[in-house]
């Protein structure tokens, strides 16, 4: 309960800080909308030439893309503070977080909710439901499975971000590791079927960005085997467990830079 209250206060302060830079807010929003619009346009152009890509129709392909955006944006909303972690480590401000009686993740993982991205989430969600409806394959059960797997994807995203934080402590580098994460998840903008083996297996199970980004949509279209459903949770829980182990080991190695 206390951590929720702190999360609320950190988020409120993050919003107030964000709103200090008004021109920055507009540029950020325009940039995000442009990027989304260009990808959307690209999909429409591809489907202007063909009806089916790797067995998926245009609405299905759009749902894959929108689902990627939903997960990616939610992760950025929640974990924006991770992008600022390097500064906290090299300046030594992380020391002050460690000396306070709350779990440091409340500050360094989810302590800087990005409200600008939150605004983009609403159109993504509405468009996803709109195109999902056009596939005529969506049932109530599939919809529940979809949202459950979205939650599972966020668990995997959480594990990835905890690993980035742990590596931030060990190497003082955050920018590059977070870019690797972004690039890897970007490979799963579209269904894994567009890749040949063994890339498909690697992206699905070893670096589970496929599992993270495409399983929810496959469940929505009733294309996911039940065993894969269980596997998705097994992998996400294993990743959370391992990332926490790495975090605890990193804390013991923390050297407190900056004096």
């Amino acid at each position: 309960m206390k951590n929720f209250k702190l999360f609320f206060l950190f988020s409120r302060n993050a919003l107030r800080t964000t709103l200090q830079a008004r021109s920055g807010v507009w540029f950020f929003m325009i940039g995000k909308i442009c990027r989304f619009a260009f990808f959307f346009l690209m999909i429409l152009l591809i489907f202007g030439k063909t009806k089916i890509v790797r067995g998926y129709s245009l609405p299905q392909m759009l749902v894959f893309y929108l689902t990627f955006n939903l997960i990616d944006t939610t992760a950025q909303i929640l974990f924006r503070e991770v992008y600022r972690f390097r500064y906290q480590v090299i300046s030594g401000e992380f020391d002050l977080t460690l000396a306070k009686p709350f779990h440091p993740f409340v500050k360094i993982l989810i302590g800087g909710v990005d409200f600008l991205d939150l605004l983009l989430l609403i159109p993504y969600l509405l468009l996803t439901l709109h195109f999902a409806w056009q596939t005529h394959a969506v049932t109530a059960f599939n919809l529940v499975a979809y949202f459950v797997l979205l939650f599972n994807s966020l668990l995997i995203a959480t594990a990835f971000h905890i690993v980035v934080l742990a590596l931030g402590i060990l190497t003082t580098d955050v920018d590059h590791t977070i870019m690797i994460y972004r690039d890897l998840t970007g490979m799963a903008r579209f269904p894994m079927q567009i890749y040949q083996e063994p890339l498909r297996e690697i992206f699905t199970f070893i670096i589970p960005v496929g599992l993270m980004m495409t399983f929810p949509s496959q469940a929505l279209f009733n294309l996911l085997k039940p065993s894969f459903f269980a596997l998705a949770f097994l992998i996400s829980f294993t990743m959370i467990f391992l990332s926490l182990r790495l975090w605890n080991a990193a804390l013991k190695k923390y050297q407190s830079w900056g004096g």
Binding site: R16, T17, G92, E93, L96, G259
Partner: peptide
């Protein structure tokens, strides 16, 4: 334990810069 201690660092600050 952490509730019973306080740490003032002359070269660091915990204050929120913009607020």
């Amino acid at each position: 334990f952490l509730k019973q201690i306080g740490f003032v660092m002359g070269q660091r600050n915990q204050l929120i810069w913009d607020l």
